[in-house]
Amino acid sequence: MLESVRRLGRLALRFLQRLGKATLFLLGLLGALAALCKRPGLIVKQLYSLGVLSLPIIAMSGLFVGMVLGLQGYANLVDFGATSTLGTVVALSLVRELGPVLAALLYAARAGSALTAEIGLMKVTEQLACMQMMAVDPFARVFAPRFVAGFIAMPLLAGIFTAIGVLGGYFVAVKQLGVDSGAFWSQMQASVGLVDDVIKGVVIKSIAFGWVANWIAVFEGYDAIPTSEGISLATTRTVVNTALVVLALDFVLTAIFFGV
């Protein structure tokens, strides 16, 4: 009994220790931002590998999620003769929840894990130590550009995911199931608010998710034990922790913005 309480205490302490380390790391990242402003090229390069290369999976997933929403929504609404509200159903689910959340989860799997692995491998192969010995700060040269690029990419990806999802829903509802096109869009427009739904949903949520997803990914790489096993553990932790934190954060944000 006493032993299990102690184990709980140890776990809590270890968690706090890691959280403290991650916070210090974040401060280091923010401290390197000034130096980064002089080198926008570094961010562009990372925007390519984090944003552009994530585009296919984001676009495909958005399309399918939108199409599924269209089908499911139709199947449920058709019994009440309310298929004209399908546009509302599809758009609200995407804009408020599915767009930012799924985009963040896909981002963690596609880009976050790669980020962790890349930084972890740079650590294993002494590239980071070498950079330090060359008097180049890895925070300014390696960590901060990746963090900032990811932070910029996340809202863009979430926006693309959501927009393509709405188009996917439109395709299924209007082209396949014969819902009236005008009703689809006008019902959607009537109930989706720019500030209340689009800004509070996609924009703010994806900014928050981008912050934590990239923080976790870069930190896990930085903190990885420099062995092949350590890196594989770190990549796994990136995906798992990002998923957990994003979903928990989503609950909090939903409660704040959309809770009654």
């Binding site: 491998l121 740079m122 192969t125 002494e126 590239q127 130590a129 070498c130 010995m133 060359m134």
Partner: peptide, 12 residues
């Protein structure tokens, strides 16, 4: 100062 690392540590 300069250091040549064991692995070379070239930026991949």
């Amino acid at each position: 100062m300069s250091m040549l690392f064991q692995s070379g540590a070239l930026f991949t």
